[in-house]
Every structure is written in structure tokens, then in C-alpha cells.
Amino acid sequence: MQTEALLRSPDIVVEPTLTVERLKAYYTTKAFGIDRDIRAVDDISLTVAKGEVYGVAGESSSGKTSLIKTIVGAIRPPLHVVGGTVRFNFGGQTYDIYDLKPDELQAIRWRHLSYIMQGSMNVLNPVRRIKHSFYDFAFPHMGLGRATFWDRVRDHLRKLDLDPGVLDSYPHQLSGGMRQRTTIALATVCTPEFIVADEPTTALDVIVQRDVLTMLRDIQRDLGSSFLFVTHDMSVHATVSDRVGIVYAGRLVEEADTPTLFRSARHPYTQHLVASLPKIGDTTRRASLSGRPPSLADPPPGCRFHPRCPLAMDVCSKEVPPLVSIAPRHRVACFAVTGAPS
């Protein structure tokens, strides 16, 4: 809300923390002389303001994780960026992720930009105590002496209601929830301005999930960081995200503030996602969507949702609907909503 007010006032121009413009990233495979492009990220533009939690929703293999990888610059072949720019704004300084040299990228990672990964077991080294993971990840970025560094780490753990004793444990000695909270502590110990969270609660059961989400929300308020929060679970977005973008087959199809998205989604895919959520206390039959998610190697022409769409028109199979602003902070890519081009 505060940032919004700032953005509207004419004398102060606040550049968003993250600006992604027309980003395209494909997986290119060459086998037996045949080139195949998997268009995992196709023409995505979005911005994340300072202190905002931007949720990315979409089903598996819709390109969510590829989007994150391209945004944080963790690009390994066969994934490569075909076009577009990713700019971060940390403390007034702009960093273009694809113009940075590897050591410059290294310097902003963890200090300004950190990443909470899905499987907490894969982040923490299973054969070393947790303090070694903290040392390896965070020490080089903090520029502190050893004693001050460990004081800082212990303070940070205490602030997150974790016993500093976890530093002396091995990952397998902790429960799943504790491990995920430790990973979050690890990702936030340098007070980064931008945090990417990829399905941070998917493997946890409901009670632990609620604890972890509350903790994330508290950290976010505390540090004032921006979050890019990725999960396929719409009810998690309802709880944590300020704004949600829906990704379908590598494209952004709708983006709005969370309440708007849940109350008055316009894209048929979003409407289906919201309507199909089962709720306790409501037994009305939930419809399911026919068809299957498209293959990114050979996506349907035009709008990629048209084979499954109840509102499909002729134009949908020929032209790609652009992402159009239909209200302040509400963008939709659908001809049925924005009107077909003449």
C-alpha cells in the first residue's frame, strides 16, 4: 500500500525492485540432426515492487521453475535466454542480470538476492553439520569477522524462534518442518532485498505448512524484502501473496491483486483454478477441466489455452492474445475478455 502511494506521487519515482521485460528462455535440444525448442518462458513481462509478495501460480511443467531460473540468472544449458531483460534495483543501483560478469553476479547473490528451494533436504549437506552450511553460504557475503558472524546467525535464528542448537545438528536429525525453517533462516540471514521462494511448503503437512508460511510472512514484514513466491497451490497464494500472476504453458495469462483474482478473475483458466478449489463446509460439485496441459515443445497455435477453453473463438487458434490491462493492476491475455482484434 505504501509503495503504491509512493508510485502515484509525481515527484518520487520508485523503480520496482524487479523488472522483467519480454523475457524468453527456451530449452534447445539437438538430437539426430533435429533441433527442438521447448518454450518454457515465452514473452513474460512483470514487475515486483519493493516490499511486495508476487505470487506465481501454474501447474507443473508450465514453466514456473524455468522462469525463476532465468530471473535469478541460474541458467545452464540446454536452457538459454532468447530475448528480454531482467533488471534488479537494489538500493538505487540497477543490475541487469545478463550484463553482469560471473563474479559480479556472485557478489549480489545471497547478499541482495536469495533463493529458498523446494526440497530442504537437497540444500543442506547431509553429511555436514548445519553450521557448515551457514558458513559456506553466508560467510563470504557478509564481510564480518567470524565471531560477529556467528553472533549474527544466532540472533537471526532466535528471532525466527529456532534454537541456535540446530547449528550443531545434522539435517537428518531435524524434522521436515524444522529443516525447511532452517533453510529459510539460511536464505534470509543476509537480509536480502529480494527473495525467491520455489514451492517452499509443498512437501509439508498442513499444520507445519501454516507455521512456515506465518514465519515467511513475518520475515517479509520485518526485512521489507520483495518476494517472488512460486507455488501451484492457490490456497497458499490466497494466504501470502499480494499479487498473483497465473502462468499457463510458459506465458503469463492473468495478473491481479490477490483479492481481485479470487473474486473476479477474468481469464477462463484462472476462473477454473479458483472455482475448482474444494472447501470445507461446501459440498457443491466441482467441475474438472477437460483435455491435458499442452506440451511446450509443440504448443497449440494462438492462445495456448484454446483447446481446453469453454469460450474459444476462431481467432483464439490463430492469434496470440496480448496481455492487456483491463483495470489498474489487472492484466489479462484473453480475446473473450479484451475483444478480438479487427
Partner: peptide, 13 residues
Amino acid sequence: IALKNAVLTPDFA
């Protein structure tokens, strides 16, 4: 009760 309270409800109505 704790389980039910932990369920995230997508309710904005």
C-alpha cells in the same frame, strides 16, 4: 481442531 484451523482457505468473500 488444529488440523482444520491450519487449512488455508481461499476466502475473500
